[in-house]
């Protein structure tokens, strides 16, 4: 059951030029949050819709939310300061299954943060491939190095790590049989490529999908995601049935 609560901003840390990590004290949400779940936050009186933000980490009674300022709502959110109070609904949605002996986390851009809590919660050997456009957009590298056994960075322009997409190191790791499960979050084309590659190796892949949301709890039905389950087509919803889906269930 989600909680509707007021959370106090404890910290707002700059990660990149446009990305902030907010630490918000929200005991009721922190207590029940699972990796891959999200919260739905009211972003001031002038923005009608709440904004869904994935849970990056949980520590004590606080959740860490990584926010990229890219519109009116997220811009408002990124400017919150310690002691500000946020109207938060959560935790929401179905998150990652972090079971398995060897977990491979694959993240792209602002899709990277929710994988951190998954890495921390997973018990097996953990590896992460994190892809970014360029060096100054890299997020949470140190945190992933602390939480994982191995971390691979890719950048589109080669300014840091390996040049190219996450699929190159993914293929090498799959070639050497280094993963029993792939957990991915990022832009849809990346998710599709990661899922298709993993499926060629018979490795189950969970993908965290994104869609424009309304209510955030499964009532308004706007954040549709088409799936095929047991041969039947369904229109599922990212906020309630997802955001994490089995890669093979998604109609790409």
């Amino acid at each position: 059951m989600p909680e509707l609560c007021l959370g106090r901003v404890a910290d707002n840390k700059k990660l990149t030029e446009t990305v902030r990590a907010l630490t918000v004290e929200a005991e009721a949400i922190a207590r029940r949050a699972a990796p891959g779940q999200f919260v739905h936050i009211r972003c001031g009186a002038e923005n009608l819709l709440r904004r869904p933000i994935s849970i990056c980490d949980v520590s004590g009674g606080a959740v860490t939310l990584v926010v990229e300022a890219r519109g009116a709502g997220t811009d408002w959110l990124a400017r919150r300061e310690p002691e500000d109070v946020l109207d938060i609904l959560g935790p929401l949605g179905n998150g990652f299954d972090t079971g398995g002996r060897r977990i491979l986390l694959v993240g792209g851009g602002i899709g990277v943060p929710p994988l951190l809590y998954a890495a921390k919660k997973a018990a097996g050997v953990k590896r992460a491939i994190l892809g970014f456009q360029t060096e100054h957009r890299i997020l949470l590298e140190e945190e992933f190095k602390n939480a994982c056994d191995e971390v691979f960075i890719t950048t589109d322009d080669g300014s840091a790590g390996e040049q190219g997409h996450v699929t190159a190191p993914l293929k090498r790791l799959l070639d050497r049989g280094a993963a029993d499960a792939v957990l991915a979050c990022g832009p849809r084309p990346m998710l599709r490529a990661v899922y298709e590659l993993a499926s060629q190796y018979g490795v189950p892949c969970q993908v965290s999908m994104e869609e424009r949301m309304g209510c955030g709890i499964g009532a308004c039905l706007v954040c549709a995601c088409q799936t095929r389950e047991n041969g039947q087509l369904h229109m599922r919803h990212v906020c309630k049935d997802g955001p994490v889906f089995r890669g093979e269930a998604v109609v790409w």
């Binding site: 009608l48 424009r212 308004c220 039905l221 706007v222 954040c223 549709a224 369904h234």
Partner: peptide, 13 residues
Amino acid sequence: HGNPPPRIAETPM
């Protein structure tokens, strides 16, 4: 099954 997404857009108020 309804329409394909995106199914929502925010507008002023």
